[in-house]
């Protein structure tokens, strides 16, 4: 193995064989060390939430990764290459520049009996962000999200003062067997926590002022997105074995959908809907 070991001959065979062996060792070791070093760097830079989202996003089925502009029918098919962070997206920027989002006619969109006030912006993980007058942003579950989780069994909110980031965990909600990580629509520092009854869960002081909210859905985008989400919900329910009247029949999602499907794997349904495969 080494020139000083018994029986070592400096021949072509030895040099080629051991050369290849050491190369393999070096390559494998380098790869591992590289991965470890990168992981260490990520951890120290606090990129865990970012990576968790990227990893989750990567595992979403292709249909779930559709670009928002496909939902609105602007583009025929496109998979989001930026993990739903449209702030980095050139296509989005161009699109916005070409067709500024149409303001919706009413102040509130009603979709299958669910209300989506348009004073706020929606994250594809079923949260909304509403800029407040004091420069903070309130974060809450949208109507579909609320109905999916009904009255939560438990809510785990971050401590005020902690940080949340876009697509990172905002808070956790337990409902039946479901344990859902709700994704944050904004970057910032938590200044106040709410509750189901107060209508919001977090009040966040954004890092950047004004806050960049390009990645959130708004106005006319909400409706097509919601239609798509209901389709997904339908699919998820079917997949998880729901046998009760399906939504496609025109049924309106009840206030507590979970209780309507007692035999369904609610964890799987929520995972699907809250973008957490």
């Amino acid at each position: 193995m080494f020139p000083w070991n018994y029986g070592f001959h400096f021949g072509a065979a030895s040099v080629i064989f051991l050369g290849a062996f050491y190369t393999v060792l070096v390559v494998v070791a380098t790869t591992i060390l590289n991965a470890l070093w990168r992981a260490h760097r990520d951890l120290s830079k606090g990129k865990v939430e970012d990576i968790r989202w990227h990893s989750d996003f990567h595992d979403l089925s292709a249909a779930d990764r559709t670009c928002r502009h496909v939902l609105t029918g602007e583009i025929k098919s496109r998979e989001c290459p930026h993990a739903f962070d449209c702030r980095e997206c050139e296509t989005h920027a161009k699109r916005i520049a070409l067709h500024p989002p149409v303001r919706a006619a009413e102040a509130e969109a009603e979709i299958f009996g669910m209300s989506f006030p348009l004073d706020r912006m929606y994250h594809r993980g079923h949260t909304w962000a509403r800029p407040e007058a004091d420069g903070t942003v309130t974060v809450g579950l949208d109507d579909l999200g609320s109905r999916l989780l009904g009255t939560p069994d438990a809510v785990e909110l971050p401590e005020p003062g902690s940080r949340v980031q876009v697509n990172g965990t905002a808070f956790r909600i337990h409902k039946r067997e479901a344990d859902v990580r709700v994704l944050s629509p904004v970057d910032g520092e938590v200044v106040e926590t709410g509750s189901v009854d107060r209508g919001f869960f977090l009040r966040v002081k954004p890092f950047a002022d004004p806050m960049d909210m390009r990645h959130l859905l708004r106005d006319a985008e909400v409706k097509p997105w919601m239609m798509r989400e209901l389709e997904r919900l339908q699919l998820a329910l079917t997949m998880e074995g729901a046998s009760l009247p399906s939504l496609a029949d025109g049924g309106v999602p009840v206030a507590d959908i979970a209780s309507a499907y007692p035999k369904t794997d609610w964890d799987a349904v929520c995972g699907e809907m809250f973008l957490e495969p």
Binding site: D42, L43, V48, I51
Partner: peptide
């Protein structure tokens, strides 16, 4: 987190 990040990088 350490596992998550390492898995991702690996």
């Amino acid at each position: 987190p350490a596992f998550l990040v390492f898995e991702f990088e690996l």
